[in-house]
Design a protein around this nucleic acid. Sequence first.
DNA 1: ACTGGCTCCTGAGGGC
DNA 2: TGCCCTCAGGAGCCAG
Length: 271
Amino acid sequence: MPELPEVETTRRGIAPHIEHQRIEKLSIREGRLRWPVPTDLPALIKHQPVQSVDRRGKYLLLRFEHGTVLLHLGMSGSLRVADADQPLKKHDHLVFHLQDGRELRFHDPRRFGCCLWTASDPATHDLIASLGPEPLSDAFTPAYLHARARGRNVAIKNFIMDSKVVVGVGNIYASESLYESGIHPLKPASKVSLARCEKLVPAIKTILSRSITQGGTTLRDFVNSDGEPGYFKQSLHVYGKAGEPCPACGKAITSKVIGQRSSFYCTHCQT
DNA sequence: ACTGGCTCCTGAGGGC
DNA sequence: TGCCCTCAGGAGCCAG
């Protein structure tokens, strides 16, 4: 269930091992991801050096001189660097063979992820062009959020999870940031005042950056590691805690499905 | 232009 | 032990 901090931690974890290395070969062991992996992708990147590993929203961008590989981890995807003699695991769908003999492996049991190619500027790609600002950037401000919410009747929780509004706020951190800022998740976006946006936006930034910082302690786990990095088990206040007492007031945390997603909140503290 | 609902998929967990 | 059922979830897509 990668949220933005996991994707950013993945980027930082693999980048030092990938950048400036040639891809000697790409093996497509299972190409049926969210969209089919282009069958000509191995030929396109063969012997080409990776210039950089970047991120836009939850997309990872492997940049080459003549184009870019777009990777998305979906909800069960992960990337690891492994020595070639490490046994492949079930659901290791893509193997990028590196010039140093190691391999970048894309693992994704549920296959909600994707691996695509674009020869043009990825910023203009259909999947990227319409994305909202990065949550940790200066462009994501209370004024921006408040302006975008004008006339929008969707629940604020769905609104902040809309990647056209702001990227990288997934289900877990949506619940957490609304709890932190005292906003009821079902409140219509247009009815969230500027003053409340001034709580919500910093809450999102704080929660996301805290998670990225925690992820930094696990960067070595991206090489020759079997398990998942443990940073995901960071302290959560409400997510997954239905029935448990609210840390602030003690009232039982409510669980409710909002927009097909389970949501957790305190009916006393969030209004 | 918005909005809500559907969809892809596998593994974990609960009930019996 | 084993089977069946339900649920989880990112985000594109489409119908209303």
